[in-house]
Design a binder for these strands. Structure first.
Lengths: 216, 216
DNA sequence: GCGAACAAAATTGTTGACAATCTTGTCTGG
DNA sequence: CCAGACAAGATTGTCAACAATTTTGTTCGC
């Protein structure tokens, strides 16, 4: 169960620190490879070093930061090759989720997916890559959710967190949304048709294309 | 990068505690759902609570223990449904690794796999399910290793750690090694033939059979 | 006898100080 | 001028004590 980042509620210090740090890294506030000194972070977030420490240990095993014995922590930089390897894992895991989802979706959920599809079509037509990227993300999340495969969902969320930086670069590439759109619509179509094999194939095709785009 | 459990070397207290605790859980020394009290563990392993605490946090995000706020930690029990879900993830990820391995193995590595195959055949013929289980484990590990897919390997090791208890139950089931053997030999055959699609299919077939066996 | 309020025990969460380790800059000898 | 030893500073690792929380057992009122 991934830790939700909800600063502000009456959480314990460690959870608060974890949430804040995680958000900061995901938002890009911390430069890549930036050093994370426990004392500075503790003062910055208003908690003690022990809490920061616990948060860093957790973030390390989520692959967001790197820790070296007696040398400190830094935000992990994901090379292009790693991004490809991560996306290959996403490919098979999201394929699994899509197949499961195709076998289990309700009518209401199909409607929701189709609505997302039309929104995406509109975003591309209006030339709003930012909105499209958000919808894209949401579509993948919904498919994961509908699959009911809790283990796969957890792994995927961990993997996705490592790709934030690369995701932005990809979304703003000219021509990319157009190609991506048709692939996404095919995924929706296959799930709506309750065809697990087709759904898995569509997801694989989409992420294969993402991998090619990553290797610009 | 998963933390290797190598107690005895001059590691730091937290790493030592982590290794010992992990080994103890994996070996089954800790009963399922057993309470893990920080003070007791600290005394038992000869380290302070802080080290135990850090170790527990890490083990939690590896899915080996469960931690509830102000209530303590216990070794996580994996239900049969969870074991199935985990094995479904293994299915797709090991499929990916097998395909990659088939595309990249050297001749020496093929020889190694075939040797493993004959050893497994012998273990089944001699009726040694324990030896066979070990070889089984090693075969899977080798295939992962030969794939060069670091991200997938890391995910798989995490997943496998959660299945120790179920693995034992499966290995000792009468008739199971015989069926498992032919599936494993097919995997080796496909990788030796450098056929990625066949390798992926063989792994999927094998783990599908494992899932069915899990649902006794 | 039963339920709720309350008190005591056990356990985790937090804090600040201290020790061990690594990095960096300086100095000495060649 | 350079290599290696050495000392100073910075940073992480460890520790023991304290605070907060939850659980459990007990007592009181009905």
């Amino acid at each position: 169960m991934p830790n939700q980042a909800r600063p502000g509620t009456g959480e314990q210090a460690k959870q608060l620190a974890l949430g804040q740090l995680r958000e900061a890294i995901l938002r890009g506030d911390m430069a890549p490879a930036q050093r994370l000194v426990e004392n500075e972070l503790a003062e910055q977030f208003g908690v003690t070093r022990a809490s920061i420490r616990a948060a860093l240990i957790e973030l390390e095993s989520q692959g967001l930061v790197e820790r070296i014995r007696n040398r400190g922590s830094r935000v992990r930089v994901v090379t292009v090759e790693e991004a490809v390897a991560i996306t290959e894992c996403r490919l098979v895991l999201e394929g699994l989720c899509a197949a499961k989802a195709a076998a289990a979706v309700t009518d209401a959920q199909v409607t929701e997916l189709k609505d997302l599809g039309t929104s995406m079509r509109k975003a591309v037509a209006d030339g709003e890559p930012l909105t499209y990227s958000d919808l894209n993300h949401e579509l993948h999340a919904r498919i994961r959710e509908f699959s009911g495969q809790l283990t796969a969902v957890e792994l995927l969320e961990r993997l996705n967190a490592q790709l934030v930086r690369h995701r932005f670069q990809l979304a703003l590439r000219p021509g990319r949304p157009q190609q991506s759109l048709s692939e996404h619509l095919a995924m929706i179509e296959a799930i709506a048709a309750r065809d697990p094999q087709a759904a898995e194939a569509a997801v694989r095709a989409h992420l294969t294309s993402v991998i090619e785009a990553l290797r610009d």
